[in-house]
Write a protein that binds this DNA or RNA. Structure first.
Length: 917
DNA sequence: TATCCGACATGTG
DNA sequence: CACATGTCGGATA
């Protein structure tokens, strides 16, 4: 169960009549306990409580219900019960159906409220459902409740108004929801004159059978789109002309495009009306615009509905972008200014001209957080200047965004408006906040559209850097000078966000076309992640000033994407000025986005100091290369053949068989038992998993001459016909092998021995897993192979030097090593000073490594190379191997991996004739 | 003809 | 149910 589901269950429970005996079980059920667990508790079998009517679930909670008025005593009894501690309960809970008290025994946090109110505190108990409560989730109890209710209303409305769910009307539906949210917020924050005005009006004016609910709401919306003033003075003629009824006339003029246009309202069923009123009765003051936005987005998005957990970690992650991008700078300036009035004033003026632009803004988290952070700094300036209540100089319209989806764009606008109001309340007080709030500014600074197709300069003119904009054709079309305003003269622009990551082969036709707009001349844009478009577009943009930083999938800084993406950016005279190392986007909630992210900040190459951040620390470096490591920028491209004097490495043999050429040990046994003549058609096969974990797997390996025999064996014939069918219906590639369904797509084998390297392997090991196989063992496409090469080649693959190189320049699977012949083997530089004697020495080292492993037979590679358990003799063999190899490079062992990598890049540059950028 | 990738996929303790 | 760690075959050059 996710937090939303739990909230719903808890809310339902709170509305039921209180049943003393049943409540503890119902409570536990609401947190996702299974029927069998509850049964055991009910029967007493697993109930560890020593209190009458108490229920104690081991390692979780001790619950007691009691007579009315006895909650204090009951809680005391729970706290003092020796069983509570013995069963390691995390919580105690007591209730009489009127009062409710609970305590988190680990943190000492307590709840004391009425029974009806306890769902408002459900966040405290989330550990009961195995949800590790990050701090934010606890603080966003309200947002979860609100989201959950809105979701119910949304679904209910679409059920009654199917036409609103169609593509054409979805935007209207979304706009309607945004208007509702605004009204709920406004009625709870005195923006509307009278507590709960909106909800109350609907409740009173619409019939209980709900038949005219939509008309009532529509009239309220129309009122909010009708001015009440003329030339600054109250003037009733607008509303008279609009026919605003007296009961709707109490609503203020809001404008800001929120209520303009179509004021259609979907029809409400009785249930929908009840939901609406229920939602209105929540306290919307507590809304958290930074995370609420992304949660509420889930309301309208079928795919995202279960993905709430994703967003709890987003605030710290967003600050990982914003702080190094510009907020740290502002704070440093604030510190530097101390109490110097003139400096403080300059800083405030500077901040008033800062534009934050998120070209993939979603529901606006980056913008909202940037805004709130800046307001905090500004407030401090104003306090120091003795001007605490001063109106903010930071215009909301300087926080601009682009969003493809309609609803999030709508929410982003709203979230910013709410953030502004809340900041005004905090820093200037309720009265001032209200005075300036309405009507809303009518400018629309969140654009709904495709960021890769829109002209960013027009949507967010950078101005500022003193560079006058030229109407050149940098962006394909000449700029329309009239579109460029200079109100931001002298300002700064910071581009930020978390654009979508879509791997090359997951992109739609349209998305590929979006990327093609970046092709220069004849050169096509190839296999890059969709996010590359944002990097390129931002890079072109900041030629006019500014900096940018995005959260990204780490794969744009790995392997083949590096030479495709980064030269364009460096070619614009820019450099990476900060980077955040790999981090998981979020790890603690179920159904989480599973992706390893990085953050990359880019600015003009001349501009500034450079830092590499990790979760724990930051490190100042002289340069950050596109692999996000310190050191010179050397970009390694694929090589079709080795640059050193080594053997040829092939990818393994591709079955393209949907598993039909492959046999488990059992399948192989069964086949050979029944059809002994099949034996010569069977060979062992290794891929990464088989090699690393010592697994046995077999394959059908059938030559043209053996085809007839193969077809004569029924189970094999059946497999072959499945393969034929599969290849027929598959890609063009597969159809090439239609006539030979008994063969792998590629059939390369060795005669003497085969050096095997897994294609993917864990990053925890200190050496790449690799080894030697007899010639009858086949290598699958999940490993790579060098056939019949001198053994010193194995010494190279097994070396620390090679691991460091592969780790630096090859692609990765998240953070796993991903071996590649073209990226890792063919590019690996070996000095020409490698003599015959050197090769003989290395051969000896390779043999010693193999012997060291054999001494531990039958331990697998995974066991032998577990960094915590690596046997001494094996470690020594590797150290010896490293020493012999490294002497060939620099006459001694390298001091560390940094030194190794520097030397390798230097040698690579020399051998390939490339220049370091 | 051969490769490289996955807002991943899947087993395990 | 969280963590460790590598399948599989499409798409594209």
């Amino acid at each position: 169960m996710n937090a939303v589901e739990i909230e719903q269950a808890i809310s339902e429970l709170a509305e039921l009549p209180f049943d003393r005996a049943e409540f503890p079980f119902a409570f536990l059920e609401a947190f996702g306990n299974k029927a069998t667990t509850l049964k055991k508790l009910r029967s007493g079998a697993s109930n560890a409580s020593d209190l009458l009517g108490g229920v104690l679930q081991r390692s979780n909670i001790h619950i007691a219900t009691c007579d009315v008025g006895a909650v204090d005593q009951a809680l005391k009894a729970l706290r003092e019960s020796p069983k509570t501690a013995a069963a390691k309960a995390k919580f105690i809970l007591a209730t009489d159906g009127e009062d409710f008290q609970a305590e988190d025994l680990n943190t000492g946090e307590t709840v004391a409220c009425t029974f009806a109110d306890f769902p408002n505190h459900f966040g405290l108990f989330l550990p009961l459902a195995g949800i590790t409560t990050v701090k934010q989730i606890r603080e966003s109890t309200f947002d979860i409740r609100a989201t959950s209710r809105l979701n119910k209303l949304y679904v209910e409305l679409l059920k009654d108004n199917p036409e609103w769910a169609t593509a054409e009307r979805r935007a209207d539906m979304n706009h309607f929801m945004a208007r509702l949210i605004f009204c709920f917020f406004a009625e709870d924050t005195d923006i509307f004159n009278g507590e709960g005005l909106f909800t109350r009006t609907i409740e009173q004016m619409s019939a209980r059978d709900s038949s005219n609910t939509h008309e009532v709401i529509s009239q309220i919306f129309q009122a909010m789109d009708t001015p009440t003033r003329h030339e600054g003075k109250l003037d009733e003629r607008y509303r008279k002309a609009a026919g605003t009824p007296r009961w709707a006339d109490v609503f203020p003029y809001v404008n800001g495009q929120l209520f303009s246009g179509n004021t259609d309202v979907p029809r409400f069923s009785r249930i929908a009306r009840a939901y609406l009123i229920q939602i209105g009765n929540l306290n919307w003051k507590k809304i958290n615009p930074d995370i609420f936005g992304s949660m509420i987005q889930a309301v309208a998005d079928d795919e995202e509905r279960g993905a709430l957990g994703m967003h709890y970690t987003s605030v710290p992650n967003i600050l990982k972008v914003l702080n190094p991008l510009f907020l740290d700078d502002l704070r440093a300036a604030l510190e530097d200014a101390a109490d110097n009035g003139r400096k403080l004033l300059n800083l405030r003026n500077r901040m008033a001209h800062i534009r934050v632009f998120d070209p993939a803004c979603g529901s606006g988290n980056f913008l909202v957080i940037a805004y709130k952070q800046m307001r905090e700094i500004e407030a401090e300036i104003n306090v120091r200047r003795g001007d605490a209540n001063r109106k903010s100089a930071i215009p909301l319209t300087n926080f601009r965004g682009i969003e493809l989806r309609d609803f999030p764009a709508e929410i982003a606008r709203l979230a910013l408006i709410i953030a502004e109001f809340q900041c005004d309340v905090i820093y200037r007080g309720q009265k001032e906040a209200l005075a300036d709030f309405l009507p809303l500014d009518s400018q629309n600074w969140i654009t709904n559209g495709n960021a890769l197709r829109l002209d960013w300069l027009a949507l967010c003119p950078p101005a500022g850097s003193g560079v006058r904009m030229q109407a050149d054709d940098l962006f394909g079309t000449p700029l329309d000078q009239s579109e460029i305003d200079f109100e931001n003269e002298g300002g700064e622009t910071y581009i930020c966000g978390n654009p979508p990551y879509i791997g090359d082969k997951y992109q739609t036709k349209e998305q590929k076309d979006d990327l093609r707009t970046f092709k220069s001349g004849k050169q096509e844009v190839r296999a890059v992640d969709y996010i590359a478009g944002w990097f390129w577009k931002a890079s072109d943009y900041i030629r006019h000033g500014g900096r940018f930083a995005f959260v990204s999938t780490n794969s744009i800084c790995q392997g083949v994407q590096v030479p495709l993406i980064w030269p364009k950016i460096f070619g614009n005279g820019q450099a990476i000025f900060f980077a955040h190392e790999n981090f998981m986007w979020g790890n603690n909630a179920a159904r989480n986005a599973q992706v390893t992210c990085i953050i990359v900040g880019v600015a003009d190459a001349q501009e500034r100091r450079k830092f590499i951040y990790s979760d724990a620390a930051r490190k100042e470096v002289a340069n950050i290369n596109p692999y996000l490591s310190p050191g010179d920028t050397v970009i390694v491209a694929r090589a079709s053949e080795p640059i050193s004097e080594v053997g040829v490495m092939f990818g393994g043999n591709i079955p393209r068989d949907q598993g039909n050429l492959l046999l488990s040990t059992d399948e192989m046994q069964a086949l050979v038992n029944e059809y002994p003549q099949s034996k010569p058609l069977i060979r062992p096969i290794v891929g990464s998993a088989e090699f690393i974990n010592g697994l046995r797997r077999y394959c059908l390996w059938i030559s043209d001459e053996q085809a007839e025999l193969a077809f004569s064996i029924p189970p094999i014939a059946e497999r072959l016909s499945k393969i034929r069918e599969y290849r027929l219906n598959g890609s063009e590639r597969g159809r090439a092998g239609l006539d030979t369904p008994y063969k792998f797509e590629r059939t390369i084998i060795g005669n003497r021995h085969t050096i095997v390297v897994p294609s993917v392997s864990s990053e925890r090991r200190e050496y790449l897993p690799c080894g030697l196989m007899p010639p009858d063992v086949r290598v699958s496409n999940l490993a790579l192979a060098i056939y019949d090469a001198p053994l010193w080649n194995l010494s190279v693959v097994a070396s620390r030097l090679h691991l460091v190189w592969v780790g630096a320049v090859c692609g990765k699977l998240e953070t796993r090593y991903r071996y590649s012949n073209t990226m890792g083997w063919n590019t690996f530089p070996i000095p020409t000073t490698l003599t015959e004697q050197g090769k003989a020495d290395l051969t000896r080292c390779a043999e010693d490594i193999l012997l060291a492993r054999e001494a531990h037979f039958p331990k697998t590679i995974a066991e032998l190379y577990d960094p915590a358990k690596m046997p001494d003799n094996l470690r020594h063999a590797h150290e010896r191997n490293d020493e012999v190899l490294e002497r060939i490079y620099i006459g001694r062992k390298f001091r560390n991996d940094t030194e190794r990598l520097e030397k390798l890049f230097e040698l690579y540059t020399k051998m390939t004739g490339k220049k370091a950028a």
